[in-house]
Design a protein around this nucleic acid. Sequence first.
DNA 1: CAGCAACCTGAATCACCTTTCAGGTTTGGA
DNA 2: TCCAAACCTGAAAGGTGATTCAGGTTGCTG
Lengths: 227, 227
Amino acid sequence: MNETGTTEVSQATGKPLSARGLATRARLLESAELVFVELGYHEASIVRITERAGVGLGTFYLYFDSKQSIFEALVLDLNARVRQAMSQAMVGATSRLEAERRGFEGFFAFTAEHPALYRVVREAELVSPQAMREHYARIVEGYREGLRQAQRDGEIAADLDPEVTAWALMGVGELIGMRYVLWERDAQGRAPRSIDPQVLDAAMRFVDGALRSSRRPPHDHDTKEAS
Amino acid sequence: MNETGTTEVSQATGKPLSARGLATRARLLESAELVFVELGYHEASIVRITERAGVGLGTFYLYFDSKQSIFEALVLDLNARVRQAMSQAMVGATSRLEAERRGFEGFFAFTAEHPALYRVVREAELVSPQAMREHYARIVEGYREGLRQAQRDGEIAADLDPEVTAWALMGVGELIGMRYVLWERDAQGRAPRSIDPQVLDAAMRFVDGALRSSRRPPHDHDTKEAS
DNA sequence: CAGCAACCTGAATCACCTTTCAGGTTTGGA
DNA sequence: TCCAAACCTGAAAGGTGATTCAGGTTGCTG
């Protein structure tokens, strides 16, 4: 929550922090998540957000500069939460590959519970490109470091580029999540608790192969290979 | 253009086709692509689209039911074009892995030239989820069949699930394209003609590994493995 | 060149929205 | 208990835009 240091300060009125105000701000953010997911940025109206939050219309502007401002706050909030969910899920993994699987599981579970992640981040492309890039960049950052470490430990192929690989892995997660978690929910009306284990297995088979032996003609040499 | 068979008919007024009208419709679609890319769905207005197309406001409704309707037509049009670009690029490949690389190249080149692809498809999530799914589903379909064939030919690992793998590969392309093609354009102001070859190499190292040996512990057993 | 389709036009209608603001309410400390 | 600071409120100002419609224009046919 305190990720950006803005939590204790109203973006709108300056700096005066709060007591009751803090709760109101939180209620607005929470309501915004629901409303934005349901209606999208443009269809969502401030009135709807405040109504759902149970506060007056004017109250909104005590905590946020504008509609765009609360949207950006929501992107950052979701970003912090999904990263938290992923690293939480990875705790206790005994290998990079296991960590990878658990990270994916955490991501899919979060997706199942917070469809806002996709909706909001995708809309951010137009509403606030800067916030969207920030979102992806932060995820990649941690990812890349994990991969670097795994390379040092000899757990994954040495000839992979950690940065590009991180983006690739994020892409795998994004589309698999969209197709097999997000889209499943509409099929029946009910959302899956998380992902179909068989799909996860299939996805991890792909990922394991990619990380383990990114280049390995039949024999079994050293993995170093300049291109 | 004739993908859906709607080209010769006005969605709005019924069926009467056209002569001069056909050109007007095409001009509207073209203008819509430009305007939607520049402003996004909601900021774009019908007036802007008609002005850029050089026709009167009312004319719009002779050819499209609504703003949403022209947006959907645009999604389908882009989808047909990107798939065409990809399969065109794959012509002449002598192996699945080479086809894979060329397909990616084709996709990245198209992305560089038509940022509309990302913008419009991402917005479709809210504007017309149905059109968005259609877009992804059509791409995956061809992909999946290509993978199946490659499995039959023993070119890629047999234990991969073609469908899940297709989504995974599409994810790799989507995020790598976003980061290294789309985002590069803003850095300097000028768009790259396509992707940095080093990045493409790195990405293909990842993909090759994933497809070639999806599971290969030091020894060399059967690949079957229940979870 | 009359006449009739097929086309085109843009002011007006209708429906909302974001943001402001003048003033009311609540809370906590002295 | 009292009061200032912190909160809250919702009507109204100032906008925007999709869609309709009554009527004008174009161009082909005979």
